[in-house]
C-alpha cells in the first residue's frame, strides 16, 4: 500500500516520464564507475607496493590455475573449481592476494569467454570472495564454518554478478527483474555453493599444505611475518 501510494504520488515531468527514473541513470553509472574505481585503486595499491618478482609470478600462476580450474572441468556440469582456489589463496596468502587473484581470474576468463558488464561484477564478486577468506582465515580450521562459508559465497557471488543485470533494466529499476534473475540463477548458485562447500570440506587441508609450502618458498618475508603474528 505504501509503495503504491508512493508510486502514484511521484512527480510527473513535462514529457510525462516519472521524474525519479531520470535520476536512476546517473546513480547506475555512478555505481558502475565506483566499482571500477575500487578495483583500479586496489590494483594501483599493489603496483605501488613494488612487489618482488616472486610475488608477481606467484599471482600469475595462481590466476592461471583458477582460470584453468574453471575451464578444464567444463565437461562436468557447473563444477566451478575457481572459487575454491580463490578462497584457498585468500586463506593462505592473505586478503590482498586473494582479491587480486579473484579479480584477475574473472578478467582473464573474460578473454576466453567474452567480455561484458558482468565481467566487472565478476571481478568484484571473486575479489571480495578472496578478500573475505583472507579476513576470516583464522576460522577456517572448523569444518562447519568452511561448509557454510562455501555455500554462502555460492549465493553471494551469484547475487553480486546479478547486479550487472540492473544495467539492462533501464531507467526504471523494476523489482520483478531482480526476482526473475534470482529464480533463473537459483540452481546455478546452489550448485556453485554446494561444490564450494564440499571441496572446502574435503580438500582444505591438502591444498593448505601445498600452498603453505609455496608461500614459504616464494615469499620468505611474508611467511616469517605471519608466523610471528600467529
Amino acid at each position: 500500500m505504501i509503495i503504491e501510494n508512493f508510486v502514484n504520488n511521484l512527480p510527473i515531468t513535462e514529457s510525462g516520464a516519472v521524474a525519479s527514473s531520470s535520476l536512476s541513470i546517473p546513480i547506475l553509472i555512478f555505481a558502475f564507475l565506483l566499482v571500477v574505481g575500487i578495483i583500479y585503486f586496489i590494483f594501483k595499491m599493489y603496483e605501488q607496493s613494488k612487489p618482488t618478482v616472486e610475488s608477481i609470478v606467484l599471482i600469475a600462476v595462481l590466476t592461471a590455475i583458477a582460470t584453468a580450474g574453471r575451464m578444464i572441468f567444463i565437461s562436468i556440469p557447473m563444477v566451478n573449481l575457481a572459487s575454491f582456489i580463490i578462497i584457498m589463496v585468500g586463506v593462505v596468502f592473505g586478503k590482498e592476494e586473494g582479491f587480486l587473484v579473484g579479480a584477475l581470474t574473472a578478467l582473464v576468463t573474460s578473454f576466453f569467454a567474452g567480455l561484458g558488464v558482468w565481467t566487472i561484477f565478476q571481478m568484484l564478486g571473486w575479489g571480495l570472495m578472496g578478500a573475505s577468506a583472507g579476513y576470516l582465515s583464522t576460522k577456517f580450521d572448523s569444518i562447519p564454518f568452511r561448509f557454510i562459508f562455501g555455500l554462502l559465497w555460492g549465493f553471494l557471488y551469484g547475487w553480486i554478478t546479478d547486479i550487472s543485470a540492473l544495467f539492462y533494466a533501464g531507467p526504471t529499476l523494476e523489482f520483478s527483474q531482480i526476482i526473475a534473475l534470482i529464480i533463473s540463477g537459483f540452481t546455478y548458485d546452489l550448485t556453485h555453493g554446494v561444490t564450494n562447500a564440499v571441496l572446502l570440506a574435503i580438500l582444505y587441508n591438502w591444498f593448505k599444505k601445498i600452498f603453505l609450502r609455496a608461500r614459504d618458498k616464494y615469499l620468505p618475508n611474508q611467511s616469517s611475518a605471519t608466523a610471528t603474528n600467529e
Partner: peptide, 12 residues
C-alpha cells in the same frame, strides 16, 4: 597487473 595477465595467459 598487465604483466601478470600476460603471464597467466601463457601459463593456462
Amino acid at each position: 597487473i598487465s604483466m601478470i595477465i600476460v603471464m597467466s595467459l601463457r601459463f593456462i
